[in-house]
Amino acid sequence: MTIKLLGSRFRPAKGIDQGILDNHRELVDSINRRGILRGSLTLGALTMLTGCELGHDGSIQTALRAVSEFNDDVQAALFRPDHLAPTYSVDQVVKPPHFNAFYDPEDVRPVEASSWKLELSGRIADKTPWTVAKMYDLPETEIIIKHICVEGWDYIGQWSGPSFKLFLEKIGADTKAKYIAFKCADDYTGSIDMATALHPQTILATKYAGQPIADPYGFPLRLRTATKLGYKNPKWITAIEVTNVKPGGYWEDRGFNWFGGI
């Protein structure tokens, strides 16, 4: 059983062979869609008749988002703070990790270790920015866990770095607050709930398979949590905020479920 990726936005296709087709896929698709030969009564045609595109009409979208928020609450209630995700052995680790972002690997803008700073804001006692050296000084936790993408693919990765709980305690974060928001060097944004942040398998990863994380996978700092889908693990983190106001995120604002728990 092979898992093939078609037009994935989380793991853009690479390679020259597919290039030409991929570059024109949207055009090809739209021509296909409009083709008169496909004039049969499809769901698409039905929705055109009723004058609303299912899911993108305002009121339907509002209703779908409301249900999605209800599902956030259900997931928060189902979350087991001490329940550990299965871990794997070193020889099951996939190297290098899978690339995933909202753009192609060629477009990654590497972060300079020397100029990198981690800004802190919100309900935090000590907001002094962190440097790479200071980050590497913290004791490391290693987790060999599955990365599961909302699209359905997964792989086993070996991540290490300070536990997020330890880090939050170090900076005097209000761990009774509800949310943590992240900003990233590539303008990605994300956020998670406090319960997940304090989970023993949530770390601020600095290393993959014992080596500093390579540029395309989030150097120098990314989140790795065993209990959330891939898109809830921001890479190239540059700012962390502890807040009680529910933050959004790059994919979440586009309609992907906010909690994104697994």
Binding site: I3, K4, S8, R33, T42, L43, G255
Partner: peptide, 26 residues
């Protein structure tokens, strides 16, 4: 978005939700 059978892909016109995020919401 991550097909199981390489040859099987469902055309948008027969699916519900124009984007994966909307389909997930449904």
């Amino acid at each position: 978005d991550a097909v199981i059978l390489g040859w099987l892909h469902f055309d948008d016109s027969i699916t519900l939700g124009g984007h994966p995020e909307t389909a997930l919401q449904w």
